[in-house]
Amino acid sequence: MRHQSAFAASALAITLALAACSPASNAPSDPVPTTPPAAPAPAQPAPPAASANVLGLEGLGDLKLGQPVPAGSSWASRGAQASDSCTTISSPDYPGAYAIVEGGKVQRITLGQRSDVKLAEGIGVGDSEADVKKWFAGFREEPHKYEDAPAKYLTAPNAESGDAALRFEIGADGKVKLIHIGMAPVLGYVEGCS
């Protein structure tokens, strides 16, 4: 009899285990979701590819602010200002552009009259002050050191922070003469290395 009880208890345990694994006849086979599934996140557009003819706060082509001149690049001192502490360099790949190197690192890049390089916003040398202000409102205005008004400098508000910043030199004709990106104090140099 003891043997029958053990057998009956085992049979009951197996029946209960199978019942627990089987769905009830009146229960839905798939649970009803309480909240709708989240929509997939929209795909983010890829950033535009960097162009060799676009000057950005990071630099121009392979020439990067705050870094040494890349070995094997076309940037070199070509009879311009050079000393132990400050050198100006240029590249035949970027006519009208030059850079200032201090302490072995690029501190400023300048676009001049012969340059066809532009900022990502499309602003380049020869554009009007009004065009600049459409994109860069709030820049600090300072009188030009060598030209009479309306010539001036337009400098980004963050220029004194030591971060890379932007500065425009506007000529007496109201047009962009030079565009500089760089870090203070080199960003504000008006005669090459000074």
Rank of each mutant, 00 (worst) to 15 (best):
Ser51Asn: 09
Ser10Trp: 10
Glu160Gln: 15
Ala137Pro: 08
Ala76Arg: 12
Gly79Lys: 04
Ser77Glu: 10
Val190Met: 13
Asp116Ser: 15
Val186Trp: 00
Tyr189His: 08
Gln113Glu: 13
Pro68Gly: 05
Glu160Ile: 11
Gly72Phe: 03
Ser22Asn: 12
Leu16Trp: 14
Lys175Phe: 07
Val117Ser: 01
Gly171Asp: 10
Trp75Tyr: 09
Ser5Arg: 14
Val69Gly: 04
Pro31Ser: 05
Val117Phe: 02
Ala43Cys: 05
Phe168Leu: 09
Val176Gln: 01
Ala71Leu: 04
Ala76Phe: 07
Lys133Arg: 14
Ser77Trp: 10
Pro185Met: 02
Asp93Trp: 04
Ile14Lys: 06
Pro92His: 10
Val190Asp: 15
Ser90Phe: 06
Arg2Ile: 14
Arg140Asn: 15
Ser85Ile: 13
Asp163Arg: 10
Cys193Gly: 05
Ala6Cys: 11
Ala6Gln: 15
Lys118Leu: 05
Leu111Phe: 06
Val176Ile: 04
Pro40Glu: 08
Val54Gln: 04
Thr35Met: 12
Leu12Arg: 10
Asp30Pro: 07
His144Leu: 06
Val186Lys: 00
Leu187Met: 06
Ala8Glu: 11
Pro185Phe: 03
Leu57Gly: 00
Ile181Leu: 03
Ser85His: 15
Thr88Ala: 05
Ser115Thr: 07
Ser194Gly: 15
Gly56Lys: 04
Cys193Val: 07
Phe136Thr: 04
Asp30Val: 13
Ala50Lys: 14
Gly138Lys: 07
Lys175Asn: 08
Tyr189Ser: 01
Pro47Gly: 09
Glu58Asp: 15
Ser73Phe: 08
Val186Ile: 12
Ala164Lys: 04
Ala184Asp: 14
Ala17Ile: 11
Met183Glu: 13
Arg140Ile: 15
Val190Cys: 11
Gly162Tyr: 03
Val132Arg: 04
Ile100Ala: 07
Asp84Pro: 05
Ala172Tyr: 07
His144Cys: 07
Ala27Tyr: 11
Ala97Thr: 08
Lys177Ala: 13
Trp135Val: 12
Thr155Gly: 04
Lys118Trp: 00
Ile179Ala: 00
Ser128Thr: 14
Thr15Ile: 14
Leu111Pro: 04
Arg167Phe: 02
Pro40Asn: 08
Pro68His: 02
Val69Tyr: 01
Gly171His: 03
Arg167Leu: 15
Ile123Met: 01
Leu18Trp: 09
Ala156Gln: 10
Ala156Arg: 02
Asn158Gln: 09
Leu154Val: 02
Gly61Thr: 00
Ala41Leu: 13
Gln4Ala: 12
Pro37Leu: 11
Val69Lys: 00
Ala38Met: 09
Pro95Tyr: 04
Lys118Phe: 02
Gly66Tyr: 07
Ile100Phe: 06
Ala120Lys: 14
Gln113Val: 12
Ala8Lys: 11
Ala8Cys: 10
Leu60Ser: 01
Ala39His: 03
Ala149Lys: 12
Thr155Arg: 02
Ala13Lys: 03
Ala164Leu: 01
Ala6Phe: 10
Ile109Phe: 01
Ala97Phe: 04
Ala19Glu: 11
Ala43Gln: 14
Gly171Thr: 08
Glu142Met: 12
Ser77Leu: 06
Ala6Tyr: 14
Ala165Asn: 09
Ala165Val: 08
Ala137Thr: 11
Ala50Cys: 02
Tyr189Asp: 07
